[in-house]
Simulated assay, not measured.
Amino acid sequence: MQHSIKTTGLFISRTQGTHKGHISALIQAIDSGIHHILYGIGSSNKERTSENPFNFQERENIAYTLMNLLQQDHPYISYEIYNIPDFNDVKARKKHIQDTVPDFDTLISGNPHVNSIWNDKKTIIPIFDTPYRGTHIRYQLQMEDWKTLRESVPEEIIKLYKQINAPQIIQSIERQNPTPPRIATDLIIVYNKKYIVGRRKHAPYGLALIGGMLDPGERIHECALREGYEELFQRDDPDKQLILTSQHPLRINDNPLRDPRGRIISFAYEAKILGGQVTGGDDISSITFLSPEEVMNRPLEDFAFPDHKDTLLAHITMNS
């Protein structure tokens, strides 16, 4: 059955790394005929954690600023802002929304899990895929990289981040709540004068260096080599051959917020392919070959982990 798009839409965002992708999603909804937006601030009961560094009042101010920006170009729209806390039970969360938020016609969401909760009643407008991610925004805030932030965050939101001392908030969270780290490995591979990266099958999505998690009883350089074989080649490739140029890593990436899955320290090794067909495997959906120039010009947000581009840039500089 084909649903018609009505005028009221529910948009839920944790607002823990607001960027231009959120504006793009809302503009799509407006262009589809939605003129009244119910903005739900998700996980409103969580604050001062790695995933949710900002409190509700800080996020509410960001949401108001975001919606006011939209009204400048779309003065005919209206909006309301609501807090949407997390519940352990999906049904309880849905009931809270039904009891708290006015009835709406359309869910503005690209999240399959959220969509599945409402697909029996509401029309869904998919959000086009964007290169921006809240994880990257929080990483750049922690690093106080305002130049890069301005590429993906409106200036009005950046001013708010500065007013609430967002970098200091994020930096203090890790100092107060250190988590035991896990170990991962990455491979820097130049093949036919191009760097090999893979597109991840699972979240966090995006381009990434070949690599993976350390197994119990495994040495770190052994993990790097094993992951290389698993993610570069098909298992039955008789000609596959991969070596590390050294058992010592070229780089260690240990930023506490580098990975949204938790505290993961990554050891990057240089490797060479001596044989076999590079097709991709295991957790990699496809292989991409990037020249040094393409690495430099590729947006940071294309990478699942921001420091993977940093690692490649450092290798380019080292070999230039």
Rank of each mutant, 00 (worst) to 15 (best):
D31R: 01
F11D: 12
F289Y: 14
S13R: 07
A63F: 03
R263E: 05
A314N: 06
I34D: 03
R138M: 04
M296T: 15
I125W: 08
F56D: 00
I27W: 06
E47N: 10
F104C: 05
M1A: 10
N253Y: 00
D283K: 15
I30L: 07
Q16Y: 09
L187E: 05
K94Y: 14
G198E: 10
I220F: 12
V114P: 01
D282Y: 05
M213W: 07
G33W: 06
A271G: 06
P178T: 05
G217T: 11
M318N: 11
N68T: 10
R14E: 14
L225I: 14
P299Y: 09
K147R: 08
R133I: 01
R258M: 12
P256R: 08
G211Q: 07
G198I: 10
Q247G: 07
I137T: 14
G280I: 14
Q277L: 11
A268Q: 04
E301Y: 00
S116Q: 13
E174F: 15
D282N: 01
Y132A: 08
T245H: 02
I189D: 09
Y195P: 04
S4P: 00
H19K: 11
L26P: 04
M318K: 05
Y191D: 13
P53Y: 14
Q176H: 08
I158H: 07
A224Y: 04
P178I: 06
R258V: 08
L300H: 02
P167R: 10
L313H: 00
S32V: 00
L10N: 05
F87S: 06
I173Y: 03
P178A: 08
A25R: 00
P238M: 11
D302A: 08
P256M: 08
R251N: 12
R298A: 06
N115I: 11
K159Y: 15
F233W: 09
E151Y: 03
N55V: 04
P260C: 11
K159T: 13
H3I: 10
R219F: 14
I108P: 03
H113Q: 13
N88V: 09
S78I: 12
R219K: 15
